[in-house]
Design a binder for these strands. Structure first.
Lengths: 208, 208
DNA sequence: TGTACATCAGTGAACGCGCGTTCACTGATGTAC
DNA sequence: TGTACATCAGTGAACGCGCGTTCACTGATGTAC
């Protein structure tokens, strides 16, 4: 393993929850640095945070819950990113395009997080996984709303189901993102060409 | 682990290669039955094939190569499946639609294989991974050819790049397949609705 | 102001486990003479 | 036709490893009196 990290100073009494956030940071950092979820072990996380492995169990019941908490933070981040990307774009069709581009960028910037969030085993998620409550749902809800606005504005056909249409967009951009991550050695064209093609095809295919 | 399998009779002299295929079968069976790649260990494969773990090393240099061989058979199978699905369909646009549907069905019928093939880590593939040589490439090549025929027939715009367009189709159907596999608990609409919507949107978006 | 003590953050050592792989071997069988 | 032997398929036991988790503990620090 890597040479032992600097030992972390013990938190003051009453500040025990500080380590909670530091463990999440450490796990996130490890995931990005190693690029390999298999190397994000309880021991490695503890080492990266400068504490001993058992300390983790003061803050998380088990490893799975910790990793899911890391994922949840990312879901919240993707929502923020998509909303920001569409800010100030008046044309609702162009706003959808911006979200699509932002989605692919987001995923490719954090391939290992993306892998855990959306390409991993369902068993990686806690049993209480409730799609209606996780932060990522607000990203989806916001996206459905964006599709609805495009329909209302006449940019997309009025007979479209906004949920199915939103999932169609999602599947398209998730498809690009996840294929690029899963098969990096494939002779892909430039990412921009793929994303532009996908945006164009979706918008043409859905317009009145 | 499961109760030990019936012990396999030793192959006759000269028939050593029989176990090669039996190990691939056993690994494939395990993958489907357990639905969990983590449980497809060398020991479990050997047990399922009715031999001892070291026997595997008479036929494969390591576990990774064995699992890749399992995947390669699946790539060959998907090619055959897609070609068969489009057989006898004269309209090239409808043929593309048939391939899309068949693709999603294929993936959902074998979620664990699909996961390893197209949602797994790149490191699961041997170092000599050459996209031009693996069986899956012929599936892709055949699909590009199908897109080209649709362009030639005037069903898709003449200014489209057939490779980018094929990848666009692939990403769309891969997106649906992989999201359904990765997040089974999400409140998805019926698969057929998603696939129909995606087919319709692609064909509308690409037609002249 | 001093001190005993409860509380709290965190630890060191160990647990049992299953993993991929190696090594020296066994015993059946086809072949050469 | 009989037999010695090389070859071949497959084995049993063990290797070292890293894993997630548990348990009894330590020692600093805030608080009550």
């Amino acid at each position: 393993m890597t040479p032992a990290e600097v030992k972390r100073a013990r938190a003051r009494r009453g500040d025990g929850q500080l380590l909670h956030a530091e463990l999440l940071d450490a796990a996130e950092r490890l995931l990005i640095e190693t690029g390999d979820p298999d190397r994000v072990s309880v021991r490695a996380i503890a080492d990266a945070a400068g504490v001993s492995p058992p300390s983790i169990y003061l803050h998380f019941p088990d490893k799975e819950t910790l990793l899911f908490a890391v994922s949840a933070r990312q879901f919240a981040a993707i929502d923020a990113r998509l909303e920001r990307s569409a800010e100030g774009i008046a044309d609702p069709a162009e706003a959808l395009r911006a979200r699509g581009r932002a989605y692919v960028c987001f995923g490719l910037e954090r391939p290992e997080h993306y892998r855990i969030l959306l390409m991993g085993k369902a068993t990686n998620k806690p049993e209480s996984f409730d799609p209606e409550q996780i932060p990522g749902s607000s990203a989806f809800t916001n996206f459905v709303a964006a599709v609805q606005r495009a329909i209302d504005a006449g940019a997309l056909r009025a007979d479209l189901d906004p949920v199915v249409t939103a999932i169609g967009f999602w599947a398209t951009f998730h498809g690009i993102t996840s294929l690029l991550i899963a098969i990096p050695d494939f002779p892909w064209p430039e990412v921009d060409r793929l994303v532009d093609h996908a945006c164009e095809t979706q918008l043409r295919g859905l317009r009145p």
